[in-house]
Design a protein around this nucleic acid. Structure first.
Length: 406
RNA sequence: GGGGAGGUUCCCGAGUGGCCAAAGGGGACAGACUGUAAAUCUGUUGGCUCAGCCUUCGCAGGUUCGAAUCCUGCUCUCCCCA
């Protein structure tokens, strides 16, 4: 049985440093310092609240930033309280100009929670996390209770929030229900008696509502702090739908290859937020050759999820395949189908092999000189390919490869 | 409730009867360059049995030789007034 350290085993300075490292907003430091002091004196840690959105469960490394922070705090003996926003999710959150999000059923929430915990467990010790669903208190809050909650804030206070401002100026719709969000999230803090709440920088407004509501309930207002949102591989906000995200469940190879494609300018933030390489070492790396720094970054992150050996292998594969332009180890083989007859037009062949999206796409690739058979460029889109006697290597661009067997 | 403006291809956005598979930008993909990127230059970006044909401009009808463009109904969004 492993015994965990207590908060009082660490100095105030160590606690403060852990909170402050890589943090963007901290409201406010004095409160935190005083709070820590009084709790440590009693041999207690803090209750650190963190909310998860159960409407999606696919986590990417952007999500890992607060989780890593929570892990640091957990190691210092603080209690992590994970709020599952099942009630908030069921309100249905219309995001920007897109359509209403479908309202989630209990079953979907359960399923998303399960996969979330599974992924969060890659980082946190979930055994020691207090998981609370906010339906626990919102289900019993009747209409009167809801009205009361609504009186806690004014419309003016609500639309101070920059996202509302922006959307109003852009003429985009805002649902009334969206005003309920911050209130509900803030009320969660009251219910779990949070000492501290962590969120991404986009959550600052919501986090501050928690402070306000706790104050009104004569609780000590929570300390609020935020971690940055990192951009995706292409510099835009990291999001699964932009296809610029690195998934927590991506395999070592995918992870390493993706991180190696990262924009140089994003490295300092990624290093600080996604690794725990000591500051001085980080500075040395960043001052050196960007390629080396990035390789180290990829290694650190990948090793965190897959272990050092897998990370090393992935790095070697990257050097071999991308730097030295050699073929990957595992190339899928497509067997020649009998109904293709004796020969198949090149665009159709590429499409059948799944190397291009459509025959038309294949035709374009050929015209652009992207298609190679055994290394030889095929530039005639009208040409056909006969059933090969020996295994034929088919390449489209730099990344798409396949074998064709006769 | 009244008035006005809108819904266009992955996204933003131009297009008011044929020259529109639809300008321009973004993104993506491909080629050159490179450090693995970025930046830059070039090209491509609905589908197909591909010099032709088919499908697409909120939805459903209609007018017309011909509609993203005109008409009718429906639907969704924004703004102003109440």
């Amino acid at each position: 049985m492993q015994t965990h350290k207590q908060a009082s085993d660490f100095s105030l300075e160590e606690h403060l440093a852990a909170f402050e490292r890589g943090c963007v907003d901290l409201v406010d430091k004095k409160d935190l310092s005083k709070l820590l002091e009084s709790r440590l004196a009693k041999g207690q840690g803090l209750r650190v609240k963190f909310g998860m959105d159960p409407s999606s469960a696919d986590l990417h490394i952007g999500h890992s930033i607060p989780l890593l922070k929570l892990r640091d705090l957990q190691a210092l003996g603080h209690t992590i309280v994970l709020i599952v926003g099942d009630s908030t999710a069921m309100v249905g959150d219309p995001t920007g100009r897109s359509k209403l999000r479908p309202v989630l059923t209990r079953e979907e929430v359960d399923e998303n929670l399960r996969t979330y915990v599974e992924q969060a467990a890659l980082i946190l010790d979930m055994e020691r996390v207090e998981v609370r669903r906010n339906s626990e208190w919102f289900d019993s809050l009747n209409f009167e209770g809801l009205l009361k909650l609504c009186t806690r804030m004014t419309v003016a206070q609500m639309i101070e929030r920059d996202t509302f401002q922006t959307r109003m100026e852009a003429g985009e719709p805002i649902g009334i229900n969206e005003f309920l969000y911050p209130l509900m999230q803030g009320w969660d803090s009251v219910e779990v008696k949070a000492d501290v709440e962590l969120g991404g920088t986009d959550q600052l407004f919501n986090l501050l509502v928690g402070r306000r509501l706790q104050g009104q309930e004569e609780q000590r207002p929570q300390v609020v702090f935020t971690t940055p949102l990192i951009n995706g591989l292409d510099g835009r906000k990291m999001s699964k739908s932009y296809g610029n995200a690195v998934g927590l469940k991506d395999d070592a190879r995918t992870m390493t290859f993706a991180i190696m494609r990262l924009d140089d300018t994003a490295m300092p933030v990624w290093f600080t937020q996604l690794t725990r390489v000591p500051d001085s070492e980080m500075a040395t790396l960043l001052a050196g050759h960007p390629r080396e720094a990035k390789a180290r970054l990829a290694f650190e992150v990948t090793a965190g999820y897959h272990g050092e050996e897998a990370a090393r292998e992935a790095a070697q594969a990257f050097d071999r395949e991308v730097r030295d332009k050699q073929l990957p180890d595992d190339i899928a083989t497509t067997e020649w189908q009998d109904d293709w007859g004796d020969a198949l037009p090149l665009p159709n062949l590429l499409s059948q092999m799944g190397l291009v999206q459509s025959t038309s796409d294949g035709r374009r690739m050929i015209q652009q000189g992207a298609v190679r058979f055994d290394g030889e460029v095929q530039s005639d889109a009208r040409a056909t390919c006969a059933r090969p006697a020996e295994r034929l290597l088919v390449q489209v661009g730099k990344k798409r490869v396949g074998y064709l067997a006769g």
